[in-house]
């Protein structure tokens, strides 16, 4: 399409704002906007001129739960979005507000994860095995990941001494199995994510443990990635859940 014709550009911007520019054409227009400041001006023109129409929408107060979910999603995104190096004094205001909520959510998740882990461990064990574990093995790390509003849970058990990382899944997280994978990450103390393999499509899996020192306060996260995992080594898709990985 000839995007240089001024008339066509005006019309594309107008139909974009109105909403009748759809599908591939809409995506193409969005890509053009990124490198075409003159087109952005056209867009702003229509946004401002049609803005008075917005005044006819009748305000509706949303339910309280919507705000709670916004808080939760911001908290989850913040954990992963931290830059590599961050001074302690930075970001205080932003952090402080979410801290209480985060602590409560983490405690709940860890408590549940621990209870589930105990259940998993206790049933098949005999006394000798328990003694062996206590004597020569440092305790494993455990975390439970539970995305909001989705009946899926993952329990992650890391035993550094045995270089073992086990994931058990309950339920399924809805994603396109043909084009997407769920990827597990561990965040180091600076908040930098390190890839830890793909979540099992079945009920459990052993994953390779990345070659890195166990962080002081490890946090794990799951994100939706292209099939086979993130091509960049960093999360590229939405983070669906995060949880602290705690030593038992």
């Amino acid at each position: 399409m000839k995007y240089q014709s001024p008339k066509l550009r005006q019309m594309l911007a107008a139909e974009y704002v109105l909403g009748t520019l759809r599908g591939a054409a809409r995506r193409r227009f969005e890509r053009l906007l990124k490198k075409d400041p003159a087109l952005v001006k056209e867009l702003r023109y229509w946004e401002r001129r049609l803005a008075p129409l917005q005044r006819s929408f009748k305000p509706v107060v949303p339910r309280e739960i919507v705000w709670a979910e916004i808080e939760q999603r911001i908290q989850a995104a913040r954990v992963v979005a931290l830059p590599v190096a961050r001074s302690v004094t930075e970001d205080r205001g932003r952090l402080g507000f979410w801290r209480t909520l985060s602590a409560a959510a983490s405690l709940a998740a860890v408590g549940l994860g621990y209870a589930l882990w105990l259940q998993l461990q206790q049933a098949p064990q005999v006394i000798e095995q328990v003694r062996t574990v206590q004597v020569i093995q440092p305790m494993p790390y455990v975390a439970m990941l539970q995305p909001a509003n989705v009946p899926a849970q993952w329990i992650v058990v890391v035993t550094p001494a045995r270089r073992s990382l086990k994931v058990s899944a309950a339920g399924t997280y809805p994603h396109d199995l043909d084009t997407q994978s769920l990827q597990l990450w561990v965040l180091d103390d600076a908040g930098q994510p390190h890839p830890m393999g793909l979540m099992p499509e079945g009920s459990s899996a052993d994953l390779p443990l990345p070659e890195m020192k166990m962080p002081q306060k490890p946090v794990i996260a799951v994100s939706v990635e292209p099939k086979g995992g993130s091509p960049t080594g960093l999360p590229t898709g939405p983070v669906v859940s995060t949880a602290p990985l705690l030593q038992l």
Binding site: Q54, F57, K58, P59, V60, V61, P62, V66, W67, I70
Partner: peptide, 15 residues
């Protein structure tokens, strides 16, 4: 900001 503006955005989205 959410308290002041969300009813307007939500009204639009519901509509």
């Amino acid at each position: 900001l959410y308290e002041a503006s969300s009813p307007h955005l939500f009204g639009l989205l519901m509509r």
